[in-house]
Design a protein around this nucleic acid. Structure first.
Lengths: 155, 155
DNA sequence: GTAATGTCTATAGTTACTATAGAGTCAAGC
DNA sequence: GCTTGACTCTATAGTAACTATAGACATTAC
């Protein structure tokens, strides 16, 4: 199977496959006379494993480790469960942080209903000097919540 | 005030100030004889505005637009409220996506309690071929949730 | 035979910084 | 005056996981 076929079967892009190969997640496949990559069922399995892991939020480094575990199945799997646990913890923390951010954004939003001139906009004034929220008051900054990574999830 | 003083007052790093200047968010300051940047109170205000916006999750592009609005306060502020609204929507979507991911991770976690050999680990088997969840069944992939951006928020 | 599509490599761009290197400057203590 | 340490300067590369682009070659459909 050629790279485009495998991409279609796995539901990913051709460039992603080449990228994963370059990153050492996928093995280097055979090549045709024209230097085209040629894959078998095992390569597809491996790719799907990687894609599944990505859907669970694993980093490529973690997937690399999981693949090496997969390639040596006699090892003890305890660290796999620990990996998942730590992911759950990370997701929990992200959710809490986003909930926190949301309350701040909603509070900010209520400062203005739009249609005003910049000087009078309560949102702009708050961005100049936001109130300190109780749960953020520890730092001298207005709020200790971290800026979220705003890409990737929504859409 | 020198760049280090301003960084201390604003609670950010020196390199961040230089980076924001290069990105056009901060104005180019006066220079001392030794070519050191020299800032006044207005520059500090502007920097704090940028940092506050960052805490609310704005992208630098959005902050650039907010700064230009701030520099022309006679404009109608409706788009500011719309910007905040769209951010709230984005945060909502991220939370929903993470909640979804969390249920999947927990389900995955229950497949194994660790201490097994790789072959028998239910987690590893599920990563090879995960079940299709009802709310994800639309796509041929095991689950339509997106991989989260796993950096930045937790910590 | 030709045109459209697919594949190849290599390189640069994305975001918001962070890290590093190498050089110059300033303030304090001796 | 000299040294030492802290501070500043610029430029460059690295981070994560791709995405986009360019230019060349191969295959497939008609």
């Amino acid at each position: 199977m050629k790279i485009g076929d495998m991409a279609k079967k796995a539901g990913c892009k051709v460039v992603t496959i080449r990228y994963y190969e370059k990153e050492g997640l996928l093995l280097e496949p055979e090549r045709s006379d024209a230097n085209y990559r040629s894959y078998g069922a095992e390569a597809l399995d491996r790719l799907e494993f990687v894609l599944h892991c990505r859907k669970f939020g694993m980093k490529l480094d973690e997937i690399r480790a999981l693949l090496s575990f997969r390639d040596h199945p006699q090892r003890d799997c305890t660290w796999v469960t620990e990996l998942i646990d730590s992911h759950i913890g990370g997701v929990d923390a992200q959710i809490a942080s986003l909930e926190h951010l949301k309350t701040h954004l909603e509070e900010l939003r209520h400062r203005c209903e739009g249609g005003l001139v910049g000087n009078d906009c309560g949102i702009m004034r708050s961005l100049d000097a936001p109130d300190v929220c109780a749960s953020c008051a520890s730092s001298h900054a207005p709020c200790a919540h971290k800026a979220p990574v705003s890409s990737g999830l929504a859409a």
